[in-house]
Design a protein around this nucleic acid. Structure first.
Length: 602
DNA sequence: GAGTTTGAAACT
DNA sequence: CAGTTTCAAACTC
């Protein structure tokens, strides 16, 4: 205990300082004193330096499930209402929880899973045990050593990665760092804890990140776990120097491998659904858009990713935080996969929010409904007055017969009612609607009997769909204010007035919503464009390899929202049904070749 | 479980 | 930096 290094405390401060200006809040579910807790933070993956780990905390079994991790409540200044919990594990804990401190080594992640032959993880092991024989567990061959943890209960032989050989271990650490200062850094930049299990949870949603060094596979096609990229559940990137790579978006082999995953292409299903919903207004209703899986272009929405990436520099704390679409530290409007553990944040969710989500308020609906009700009742009142006048002239009505009739053709009933002059109740409007809607006459046939208001609305739409053959030869088609074939003129007038007012009001309401949606879309689009502009400026495409540039030219890595064409609102002259695809889903070349493939061909 | 394959790490 | 060796995990039988 007495050997608490100032360096550790300094690193703790530095980590906290980097984590979105967080404040170290209260410690819950742990009786560990603050100083001791600070000691338990493992900074192995931070700053590229492996810090000495005190034996006091190493001597315990790290696989005891009863050992509950400490949890720090980290309260962000930017989001004081949403404190995040950061699970802090004792140094050397062998990943009992996904957000734990282990570096993002693909090996350490995937190999910690119990998997079946089809590479489907069934259950995550609490500990993973190495089997080193010749490395004394003091080289990066050893998974435990590479992860910065002591071997504990492993099947290794002649292990020096333990308390008893702390001196040699430190020496090995120094040697390793000397050779590669980033040796203990996460290999996967900007990657969530993409275990195979998590992929099962989220289907084939994008696993953001790429291998910092890239893989060098030759025979596995990068579709086996020999490949670190595949292990990490990420696509090969421009960093890779693999041959015959099949681990790219659109790869048939890769798709075949993942065939059968549930929630397959959930993102695109959601995308299509959203497109249908927002078709009338626009395209920016995506709070979180699915993005292309092949990330060989600039990291839209994340900024530069790499060893110097801020996200990468503090992997544990950041990844433990539940970064959601609505609360990303960067407040990016772009698609954001959860950069957190599956446990902490659950599967990635592309939550859709309609453009009208903030526009339609309950009182709006209330207002609309009340308007409709009031108008209907008023028209019904007028109708009743007219009917009462007519009653005095015509024969007494046979109300009981008409009203009690539960069968028969609706339009016959309507005609009978109209002929009988039965009406005068406030329910008349409902009956009218009901009769109209359930008439066995076709719409086109009935169009000849439409009220002037309805016809006016139809004329206003200027849509031939409604004004088609059925009206082409009819008088109504050429005279929107003409109502023909009406058995009872006065009743028809009431219906007409009723329809006209209600439909007109409803149309106005819809137009209002469309307008509001457009306004919001415009705002979102302009904001997205400006932020992407900033991103591109900061990225500056400086590190683009040829592969990356090719990806950009292929248009694979793009923000869907920015590509989506502006859709004119329904009802405008520019609107066309064929334009109702708000999202332009870019086709991914199926036979897209990797850099290595091209190199080989060359 | 033994043997083979594979690719990262280490070494030259 | 490239080639080779070592190593341990992944994979196959």
């Amino acid at each position: 205990m007495g050997e608490v290094g100032n360096q550790e405390m300094d690193n703790l401060s530095s980590v906290i300082a980097q984590t979105d200006s967080v404040e170290l809040g209260n410690v819950v579910s742990s009786d560990v004193p603050a100083k001791k807790l600070a000691r338990q933070l493992d900074f192995t993956g931070i700053g590229g330096a492996v810090l000495p780990e005190h034996p006091h905390f190493q001597s315990r079994s790290r696989c005891q499930e009863s050992e509950s991790p400490a949890v720090i409540v980290v309260q962000s200044q930017s989001q004081p209402q949403s404190p995040q919990q950061v699970v802090v594990l004792p140094i050397g804990t062998k990943a009992p929880l996904p957000p734990a401190r282990k570096p993002d080594s693909p090996k350490s992640r995937s190999r910690s899973n119990v998997e079946t032959k089809d590479a489907t993880p069934k259950k995550q092991k609490q500990c993973k045990l190495c089997n080193c024989k010749h490395s004394r567990c003091l080289k990066l061959y050893c998974e435990c050593f590479a992860s910065g943890v002591y071997c504990d209960g492993c099947n290794c032989t002649n292990c020096h990665n333990n308390v008893e050989h702390e001196a040699s271990r430190r020496e090995a650490v120094e040697t390793t760092l000397e050779r590669n200062p980033n040796a203990f850094r996460p290999k996967i930049a900007n990657s969530p804890h993409g275990t195979r299990e998590s992929r099962d949870e989220i289907g084939e949603l994008v696993m953001l990140g790429k291998h910092n060094k890239g893989c060098h596979c030759k025979k596995s096609g990068c579709l086996k776990k020999y490949c670190e990229c595949f292990q990490a559940n990420i696509l090969c990137s421009e960093n890779c120097k693999c041959m015959d790579c099949k681990n790219f978006e659109g790869s048939e082999e890769r798709q075949a491998l993942f065939h059968g995953d549930h929630a397959n292409n959930m993102a695109y299903i959601q995308q299509a659904a959203n497109a249908a919903i927002t078709g009338a207004i626009g395209t920016s209703g995506y709070a979180c858009l699915p993005v292309s899986k092949k990330r060989k272009g600039p990291e839209l929405g994340f900024g530069p990713v790499g060893k110097d990436s801020p996200l990468n520099s503090i992997p544990q704390l950041h990844q433990a935080n539940d970064i959601t679409c609505s609360g990303t530290p960067t407040s990016s409007p772009f698609p954001v996969a959860h950069v957190g553990s599956p446990v902490a944040s659950g599967p990635s969710k592309f939550s859709f929010r309609s453009l009208l989500a903030d526009l339609i308020q309950p009182h709006d609906l209330k207002e609309l409904c009340s308007v409709l009700v009031v108008l209907t009742s008023e028209v019904a009142k007028i109708q009743a007055e007219q009917k009462s006048d007519e009653k005095q002239i015509n024969d007494p009505p046979q109300i009981s017969r008409a009203s009690s009739s539960g069968d028969g053709v609706h339009h016959q009933k309507a005609e009978e009612k109209a002929a009988d002059g039965e009406c005068g109740s406030s329910n008349q409007s409902d009956r009218s609607v009901h009769d109209n809607s359930n008439s066995d006459s076709s719409d086109m046939t009935r169009a000849g009997q439409m009220s002037p208001g309805t016809l006016a609305l139809m004329c206003d739409e200027q849509d031939t769909m409604f004004m088609g053959a059925g009206l082409a030869d009819g008088s109504a088609a050429h005279d929107c204010n003409t109502s023909s074939h009406v058995p009872d003129k006065s009743l028809s007038d009431v219906y007409t007035e009723q329809e006209r007012i209600v439909l007109t009001k409803f149309r106005d309401c819809l137009n209002k919503l469309i307008t509001l949606g457009e306004i919001k879309e415009t705002k979102l689009t302009s904001r997205s464009e400006s932020e992407v502009g900033n991103q591109n400026q900061s990225n500056n495409f400086t590190s683009n390899s040829g592969c990356q540039q090719r990806s950009i030219s292929n248009g694979v890595v793009k923000n869907v929202a920015l590509l989506a064409p502006r859709i004119p609102p329904i009802g405008t002259a520019a609107h066309h049904p064929n334009n109702d695809l708000p999202l332009k889903i870019l086709p991914v070349p199926k036979n897209r070749k990797t850099k290595s493939q091209i190199d080989r061909e060359v």
